[in-house]
Design a protein around this nucleic acid. Sequence first.
DNA 1: AACATTTCCGCAAATGTTTGCGGTGGAAAA
DNA 2: TTTTCCACCGCAAACATTTGCGGAAATGTT
Lengths: 331, 331
Amino acid sequence: MGSPATLKKISTQLNISISTVSRALKNHPDISENTKRKVKELALLMEYEPNSYAVNLRTNKSRVFGLIVPVISNLFYDSFIAAVEEEARRCGYSLIILQSGDDPLQESENLKLCKLNRVDGVFVSLVADSNSAPLYNKLKESGTPVVFFDKVPDDAGFDTICMADEEAATMAANTILKYKKKKVLALLGNADLSITKKRKDAFLKVFEKEKTAPTLDIRHCLNSAEARKITTEVLSKKNRPDHIFCMSDELLIGAMKSIYQTDLHIPDDLSVLAISNGFIPGLYKPEITYIETSGFELGKLSVKRMLEIMEGPSPSRSIILPSRLVTGGSL
Amino acid sequence: MGSPATLKKISTQLNISISTVSRALKNHPDISENTKRKVKELALLMEYEPNSYAVNLRTNKSRVFGLIVPVISNLFYDSFIAAVEEEARRCGYSLIILQSGDDPLQESENLKLCKLNRVDGVFVSLVADSNSAPLYNKLKESGTPVVFFDKVPDDAGFDTICMADEEAATMAANTILKYKKKKVLALLGNADLSITKKRKDAFLKVFEKEKTAPTLDIRHCLNSAEARKITTEVLSKKNRPDHIFCMSDELLIGAMKSIYQTDLHIPDDLSVLAISNGFIPGLYKPEITYIETSGFELGKLSVKRMLEIMEGPSPSRSIILPSRLVTGGSL
DNA sequence: AACATTTCCGCAAATGTTTGCGGTGGAAAA
DNA sequence: TTTTCCACCGCAAACATTTGCGGAAATGTT
């Protein structure tokens, strides 16, 4: 009674074979109702639970997903993780989380950890200079499905799922146009990231065709502090912008800190527009108008896609989640 | 060459026994340098990696921790999770995350999942009406260490680690006293939580002994929206408070939304003090003065404690992380 | 009564590792 | 030459489960 219950212990107690116990607990039709009952009763009494180590070994499955993300403590990623965890659990899967901390090396280490843990599938958001594409390919070939989200590889042949980056940027540009802004400061993220490129291109494209386009000041910043510095610098010039567009929450926070240092009034003196999941924009007064990108939605969809792939290997697809404008009072 | 490499495949290739291969890869002294070299070379070539299912089964360990938390998408918990993940990975452990969503039932389900996955240890922050104490006891008795953090059980005999709740509340009260506030609105969390009780008691205790104590308006609110409603209600009265104390970020956000609706100026008309990890307070203008509770620190410490327990079963301890006052401009 | 069918169950292999123990061959000691 | 010892390696059990196959007993069919 000391060590945990096993099939063998139940079987010797009942003087039947291990396989019968195994089948009884699984409601196998070969086993009579009578023995099923006896087995189940004893199993309950002995608090039997299957040893997943052995089950995994035998079935070569773990019912665990891996999730690799640049950082956890982040308003977008944490809601994504929350959604994936919830959905995965609902479908009988557990979730191992690994963060790469913007380090390509760590990312490939994490991928190795996923292989080591022999997860049944992995979700990945790439770090900036990820060079692990071949590793992902190998993983895929070895039969472990990979779903990329948010920061996805450029190469075709992968399953990706991300926000409508172009659409969001286009929407932002059109909104700015509609409000007849004269001079806009656009704060964009890491220039090396494909997500930044996509958003930038789409953003610029809208203005190209327009006669009434505002003057654009495009700036790349890696983090909140940089965004703040740049904003302060730009706002102090004689010919200051009348609008600021922020590509992410992080940048918005930096910009707002800077704006708070001035006595400029939003939206009269300066209007603001961001791409965000909505939490941060709601904290300010007035609330910042933003284009929504829901990590939660993305997470739910990612799990759904993962399960699809695991069903029957379908050709790889790129899924794009549409975005919408949420009006605050900053524009 | 199709299916993944195993010890057996390497052994037949080299015409040696499985055990020799196993020992060679582990640098066992019984094996000659020569065979070690050959084995390692072939292992590299065949891209051998040990099947953790089998290793786990044999060694009865998984090198995986479980982490049960009410919610993931939360400024405190996500930094805690980030810290635990980082530290655990550094020590060769992976992390399975489960959220209970403030549902006691889900919490015990999650605990079962931890047992099912046979994790080597579990970190738990309890939900409000958790009734799973016996389950945790059983888990502990079965040899799986449990470390509670933040929301910990009242019962003795558990390993707990949390912020200096009393100290933080005492510090808050003393600060309020120092600034000679006349009337303070104190926004506290769920009254059923022990963390709330502790903070409340310590908070009140400071004022009991003081002649110059301010009038106190103690309110409990479950979430941000409630905090906002209460604040608005209280601020609209003729005899409005000159100070608001918020026990958490969530409550602070609600209060600030309400304050932003008025034309009260911080800190002249109304001062604000919060208990927080510092992220949210930094977003406002002026930045909110707060008493720091670092989820990140707590996470690092929790892993350290877990490893200690796993070394040699020490008597259970309660660890308390001291807090400090971070001065913004709201007081 | 002889045969066919169904019901119920056990045998044994297989999953990939780890590890205690025993064994072989050769060199050194007696 | 015999004994001792050491370096090196293999046997086989054990971990707990799943599953194809075969077989005995019970039931049903002529």
